[in-house]
Simulated assay, not measured.
Amino acid sequence: MIDLLKEVARGKRGARDLNYAEALHAAESILGLTATPAQIGAFLIAERIKMESVEELEAFVAVCRKYARRESQQQGQGLDCAGPYDGRTKSFAATFPTAFLLSAAGLPVTLHGSASLPPKWGVTLLDIIREAGIGAADLTPAASSTAARDSGVMVVDAEQWCPPLGAIRSIREEIGMRTVFNTAEKLVDYSGSPYIVFGIYHNTVFDRLARLLIKLGYQKALIVQGTEGSEDLYIDRPTRVYTIAGGEFHLDIINPEALGLDTQVPEMNWNPRQQLLTAEAVLQGGGHMAFYNQTLLNGAARLKLTGLADSLEEGMYICKDLLDQGAAWKVYLKWKQSLLGCEAAALGHS
Results as ranks from 00 to 15, higher is better:
98 T>F: 00
147 A>W: 09
2 I>C: 01
326 G>A: 08
138 D>P: 07
28 E>W: 12
6 K>C: 02
205 V>N: 09
103 S>G: 14
97 P>L: 04
271 N>Y: 03
19 N>W: 05
236 D>C: 04
349 H>R: 15
1 M>Q: 03
340 L>R: 13
141 P>Y: 02
285 G>K: 10
162 C>F: 01
141 P>L: 05
27 A>W: 12
237 R>D: 04
255 N>C: 08
92 F>Q: 08
269 N>F: 09
300 A>G: 01
242 Y>W: 11
292 Y>W: 11
29 S>H: 05
330 K>M: 06
151 S>M: 10
213 L>W: 00
186 K>V: 04
327 A>V: 00
346 A>T: 04
151 S>E: 05
49 I>H: 07
270 W>S: 06
191 S>W: 05
85 Y>N: 02
233 L>V: 07
185 E>P: 00
60 F>Q: 00
178 R>A: 12
113 G>S: 13
68 A>R: 11
132 A>G: 10
191 S>F: 10
142 A>P: 00
230 S>I: 00
110 T>N: 00
46 A>L: 06
16 R>G: 11
270 W>A: 11
269 N>K: 14
298 N>W: 01
80 D>W: 02
217 G>R: 11
298 N>G: 08
204 T>F: 14
5 L>H: 09
63 V>E: 09
226 G>R: 02
26 A>N: 03
193 S>A: 14
172 R>N: 14
69 R>W: 08
108 P>D: 10
301 A>K: 07
109 V>C: 08
204 T>A: 09
256 P>W: 12
347 L>S: 01
315 G>D: 02
131 E>D: 06
241 V>A: 05
183 T>S: 07
54 V>T: 14
295 T>W: 00
164 P>Y: 03
283 L>P: 02
90 K>Y: 11
220 K>F: 02
